[in-house]
Nucleic acid binder design. Structure first.
Length: 480
RNA sequence: CGAGGUGUAGCGCAGUUGGCUAGCGCGCCUGCUUUGGGAGCAGGAUGUCGGGGGUUCGAGUCCCUUCACCUCGACCA
């Protein structure tokens, strides 16, 4: 047993020894993705894609419940269209992929492969919005976009990535701002309830905000190594894009007005967070609500009379109870199957063998704690859904404890630098609101401002960096 | 894009101052025996040594060049 255990541990790099290598190992060995022949582009394999489908399902339901509709825009953006909003082009131009040929001929105007679709939505809104009666427009699309990044990592940063982008148009500032914050709450609720990931909500500093936005709001999550991952953003555009794209409508007094807009997105990057928050040295750990398979049945001594029959009977019972369950009756050894489904993060494993059948029970092993417990076969349909819910809640509790215990406070710059250098996690500190301090902090420590949290405190009266009067509390950290 | 590193079978690697028919482990295939934590035995298949060029009687090994990937920075969801 000790020998086998060792073999298993050697299969992936230890999480605490080399976190980034551990991440790469989990992503590939759990068969979430494979690399493709184009640099920085990844293949989502069945399990990786199933997770993305689950994320889509959870978000899409919430979007629709809050009145949004899905559309699909083209993937090409003519160069002239992309250039209409100055800040926006400036932000994205360096990483755009261009199509210059079509059908063997050079195009008159080159086409950008969308890095994001604000411009396409704006062009469309300019056409279809005439009256206040046409508002609001609450559109979303599920697509992939391309950004020519210099370095890439599976899920965290790839040339092509899948996401949803919501783009809305409203009558006025108040409506648009309400929408911006509503979507940020939806993101927070989704990752908390479905992915068991706690986040901190806040506003981005001007330096970190989206190209073309007036305000950018974010949910920031903390990975197991203490680094931050921006996990979803919601932008308030004011009427900046509306002026650039001439999106106007006649209001109730028959006066011509510009619309006020928002956009918001969550990408496959969130799967990186899912991995880096919950998983361990045995591989992936999936919260039950997002797990494509919640229970894996592993028969033991399956060649013996009655074992497979009982396993199939339990399979049918659990399916009927609404559990996503599978039976592995392949001829691999039980030990192999144990390790395999641990690597793939299946929340519960059900072992059933001749001894169990005789006792009228089955063994249930939890993926997150590793504990094994016997349950009466007759009670499985009732008890397992409860156990899945318990596990979901435990994962969130553990992640919340991990987040809260690693948020530190700094009132002076020496303490700040020591914390950033010595303690993985976030640091709360007061800020004067000026760019030079933000840049200096980044240069000195490599930490960036993650957000200006909604939950403000008056830690001190002066900026942690320059000593000038402080304007607000900022959350700092090293980020992915 | 800067600095460093790695490319040899599906995966992980060894390959000596340049020398014979390029090896090992895992995986894969076949058969038998097995089955409560990655099973055992026997047999079998798999290589443009990342690509191109050069030096040499002879290159996986030396030189030039190019490509890809990884790590750390700068940029981003």
């Amino acid at each position: 047993m000790a020998k086998d255990k060792k073999k298993l541990v050697e299969a992936i790099t230890s999480r605490d020894k080399d976190f980034t290598q551990w991440y790469t190992d989990v992503v590939t060995k759990a068969e979430l993705i494979d690399y493709s022949s184009v640099r920085g582009c990844m293949i989502l394999r069945p399990l990786g894609n199933a997770l993305w489908e689950a994320v889509r399902g959870g978000l899409d339901r919430r979007f629709k419940e809050s009145g949004h509709e899905n559309v699909l825009m083209p993937m090409f953006i003519p160069e002239s269209l992309l250039q209409k909003e100055a800040d926006h082009v400036e932000g994205f131009a360096p990483e755009v992929a261009w199509v210059t040929m079509g059908g063997g001929e050079v195009l008159q105007e080159r086409l950008a492969i969308r890095p994001t679709s604000e411009t396409l939505f704006c062009e469309h809104y300019a056409k279809v919005v005439q009256s206040y009666r046409d508002l609001p427009k609450l559109y979303n699309q599920w697509v992939s976009v391309v950004r020519w990044e210099k370095t890439t990592r599976p899920f965290l940063r790839s040339l092509e990535f899948h996401w949803q982008e919501g783009h809305t148009a409203h009558e006025n500032e108040a409506d648009a701002m309400e929408e911006t914050l509503r979507m940020l709450d939806i993101y927070r609720d989704f990752v908390k309830e479905d992915l068991a990931i706690p986040v901190i909500q806040g506003r981005k500093t001007d330096k970190e905000k989206f190209a073309g936005a007036e305000q950018t709001y974010t949910i920031e999550a903390m990975m197991h190594d203490g680094k931050a991952l921006q996990s979803g953003t919601s932008h308030y555009f004011g009427d900046g894009f509306a002026r650039a794209f001439d999106i106007t409508y006649s209001d109730r007094e028959n006066k011509l007005q510009y619309v006020h807009q928002t956009s918001w997105g969550m990408s496959t990057r969130i799967l990186g967070a899912l991995i880096m928050v919950h998983s361990d040295d045995s591989g992936l750990v999936l919260p039950p609500r997002i797990a494509p398979t919640q229970v894996i049945i592993v028969p033991v001594a399956q060649h013996k009379e009655g074992v497979l029959e009982k396993a199939r009977e339990i399979l049918a019972t659990l399916k009927a109870a609404g559990i996503r369950v599978k039976l592995d009756d392949s001829d691999k050894s039980p030990g192999w199957k144990f390790s395999e489904y641990e690597m793939k993060g299946v929340p519960l494993r059900l072992e059933i063998g001749p001894r169990d059948i005789e006792a009228g029970q089955a063994l249930i092993a939890r993926r997150d704690t590793g504990t094994k417990e016997a349950f009466a076969i007759s009670e499985l349909a009732e008890k397992l859904p409860q156990l899945l819910e318990t596990m979901q809640a435990d994962l969130l509790a553990r992640a919340t404890e991990s987040l809260n215990s690693r948020i530190y406070e700094a009132k002076d710059y020496d303490t700040f630098k020591e914390l950033i250098a010595g303690k993985p996690g976030f640091v709360k500190a007061m800020w004067c609101g000026e760019l030079p301090c933000e840049e200096k902090i980044k240069e000195d420590t490599t930490a960036t401002s993650r957000c200006i949290p909604f939950e403000q405190e008056q830690l001190a009266d002066t900026c942690v960096c320059c000593g000038a009067p402080a304007k607000q509390l900022v959350l700092w950290g090293k980020a992915y």
